[in-house]
Amino acid sequence: MIRKLFPPLLVSALFLLIWEGAVRLLAIETWILPAPTQIWKTFWQQLPLMQADIAATIWIALLGLCIGIVFGVIVAVFLHLFPMMEHAFYPIIVLTQNVPIIALAPLLVLWFGFGTLPKVLIVVLVCFFPITIATLDGFRQVDPTLLRYMKIAGASRLEIFYKLEWPSALPSFFSGCKVAATYSVMGAVISEWLGAQAGLGLMMQTAASAFRTDRVFVAIGTIVILSLSLFLLIQLLEEWLIRWKIKKGE
């Protein structure tokens, strides 16, 4: 574990060192690029004031992620069980991802106002896609030998689904969830740019317009920590649920 963590930690430390050195040697103004030590100081100053913002962003990200997971799985299962539907809807689903969220967001505000609903919708929109695609992929990768066994044994369509297809798609589903988890915080922040009472997105905007670059970096850092925590949470859940998976090197 320590051995695995050492190289990335070393690289990060080196990067921060060069950053700090450059800012000091070249006397770069704080409003252009603050030094890491400065950001660290601001972080601890801001932390008590940021709690409402952090809570607001987490709430939107989590709510959107949960709805996105449920919606994503429902869409994947539906498309898988009705291949005709997959044919008709798959291109449209891919298309929804080509519409830039930034462009879509003002429309959602126009339709649903400035409340929680349009913000959660944005998160759902960015989250369901990786889950649907990954889960569908998992369904397609079912071992043909096992499928033949099930069919010859006389298993019904439903039995084939929940005894074979669903469990074998589970690892793919979790891969989708991990991508979605990282997207969810980003989606929440973007949604807050459109107008919010609180949130890290709002904090970022206010700080940027006041040239408080150090606070922008504090917001960015917090967003990274949130994304990473969500990612790890899902990873833990996966490891606990998929104990049967062949571990590397075993």
Binding site: L146, I152, G154, S168, W244
Partner: peptide, 16 residues
């Protein structure tokens, strides 16, 4: 379907 007991060549056990 569902009338014979069948065993394929490669391991056909369900890994989970």
């Amino acid at each position: 379907r569902g009338l014979i007991g069948y065993m394929p060549q490669t391991s056909s056990l369900f890994p989970w």
